[in-house]
C-alpha cells in the first residue's frame, strides 16, 4: 500500500498516456505500431532531456526559462565549429556542447547563488541575452544542411538495436538521473533544499550552491540537446526552438513536479514530456489541425497543476491520534 502511494503520480500519468494512446488507436490503429511509437519517442527525446534538467531546477524552488535559448546558442556554436573545422570528431563536439551549455547554466547559477537574484528574473534576462548573442555570432544568417559535415549530421540518426542514438541518449539520461536523484547525496540535497531550505541549512546543505548545481545540470542538458537538435534537423538559426522553454515547464508540471519545490521525479518529467510528445504527434494523424496543440498543452498544464495541488495539499500538524492512523 505504501508503494502504491509513492508511485501513484507516475502510475496515474502512465494510465493517462495509455488511455490517450487507446483513444488515438480507435481512429488510427497504426499510431500504436511499435515503429511509430519509437518515432514518437525519438521526436520527444529533446523535450525529455530538457524536462529532466528543468525538473531538477524546479525542485530547488527555481525556474530556468533560458533552456531553449541555451539550446539554440549552443547549437549555433557547435554548428559554427563544425563549419570551421569539419574534421572535428563528434565525441569532441558533444563534449564542447555539454561543457558550453553547462557554462551558460553556471552563469544563471552564479547570479542566483551569489547575488541572490530571483531565478525568474535571471533566466528571463539570460534568455534574451543568449538569443541576442546568437544573432551577433551568426549575423542573423542560417546555417543550412549542406554546410554541416556528414558525420555531424549522422550521429543522432545512427541506429543501435533498432533505435536511433538520439533515443538511446534520452533513455540513458533518464536512467542516469534517476540514480543520481535517488541514490546520491547531491540528488537528495536537491529535494531537501527545495522541500525545506531552512531545515536543509541545519542539515549542512548549502542551498545556494545546490541551486547552482541544478542550473549547471540544466544547462549541460540544454547544451547536449542543442547539438542533437541542430544535427538532427541539420539547421541552426536565431529562433531555433523559440518558446520551447514553456513546453519544458509544461512537461514538468504535467509530470507532477511541484512548482513550489521539493516534489518531482525523473520518471514523472519523462512521462510529462511523452504526454505532450504524443499529443503533438497524434494531432495531424487524427486529422485535427496542429493549431490545436498550443491550446491543448495549455489546458493540460492547468489540469495537471490543479491535480498536483490536490495531491500535495498541506496536511497540518496532525494532532489527533486517529488522523495519524488514518493516513
Amino acid at each position: 500500500m505504501q508503494k502504491q502511494i509513492l508511485m501513484s503520480r507516475e502510475v496515474l500519468l502512465t494510465g493517462a498516456i495509455v488511455l490517450l494512446l487507446a483513444i488515438i488507436s480507435t481512429r488510427f490503429p497504426a499510431f500504436i505500431a511499435p515503429s511509430n511509437l519509437a518515432n514518437v519517442f525519438n521526436d520527444t527525446a529533446p523535450l525529455i532531456l530538457l524536462a529532466i534538467g528543468q525538473m531538477i531546477v524546479i525542485l530547488t524552488r527555481c525556474i530556468d526559462l533560458s533552456v531553449a535559448a541555451n539550446l539554440a546558442l549552443t547549437g549555433m556554436v557547435v554548428s559554427m565549429i563544425n563549419v570551421a573545422m569539419p574534421g572535428l570528431p563528434v565525441p569532441i563536439i558533444i563534449f564542447i556542447a555539454v561543457a558550453f551549455g553547462a557554462l551558460l547554466g553556471m552563469v544563471n547559477g552564479v547570479l542566483v547563488w551569489k547575488l541572490e537574484i530571483p531565478p525568474i528574473v535571471v533566466t528571463l534576462g539570460t534568455m534574451t541575452i543568449f538569443r541576442g548573442t546568437i544573432f551577433l555570432l551568426s549575423e542573423g544568417k542560417w546555417i543550412n544542411a549542406h554546410e554541416f559535415s556528414e558525420t555531424f549530421k549522422a550521429f543522432p540518426r545512427t541506429e543501435l538495436l533498432g533505435l536511433p542514438l538520439m533515443s538511446w541518449i534520452a533513455i540513458a539520461a533518464v536512467i542516469f538521473f534517476s540514480v543520481v536523484m535517488s541514490r546520491t547525496t547531491l540528488g537528495r540535497a536537491f529535494y531537501a533544499a527545495g522541500g525545506n531550505p531552512h531545515a536543509a541549512t541545519y542539515a549542512g546543505i548549502d542551498v545556494g550552491r545546490t541551486q547552482f548545481w541544478a542550473f549547471t545540470i540544466s544547462g549541460a542538458l540544454a547544451g547536449l540537446t542543442g547539438y542533437l537538435w541542430v544535427s538532427r534537423f541539420a539547421v541552426a538559426f536565431v529562433d531555433l526552438a523559440g518558446g520551447f522553454e514553456l513546453s519544458v515547464v509544461a512537461a514538468c508540471v504535467i509530470g507532477g513536479v511541484a512548482i513550489m519545490g521539493g516534489i518531482g521525479t525523473v520518471v514523472g518529467a519523462m512521462l510529462g514530456a511523452l504526454f505532450l510528445g504524443i499529443i503533438s504527434n497524434a494531432l495531424p494523424v487524427v486529422n485535427i489541425s496542429p493549431f490545436w496543440q498550443l491550446a491543448i498543452s495549455g489546458g493540460a498544464i492547468i489540469i495537471a497543476v490543479a491535480l498536483n495541488a490536490q495531491a500535495n495539499r498541506e496536511k497540518g500538524r496532525i494532532i489527533l491520534k486517529r488522523a495519524e492512523h488514518a493516513t
Binding site: 490545436w292 495549455g298 493540460a300 492547468i302
Partner: peptide, 21 residues
C-alpha cells in the same frame, strides 16, 4: 489556490492556442 506562475504559463498557451484554433 494554484501558483500563479504555472497557471498563467498554462493560460498563456490556452488563450493564444484558442486564437490559433
Amino acid at each position: 489556490g494554484l501558483p500563479s506562475i504555472v497557471v498563467t504559463i498554462g493560460t498563456m498557451s490556452l488563450f493564444r492556442g484558442i486564437s490559433y484554433i
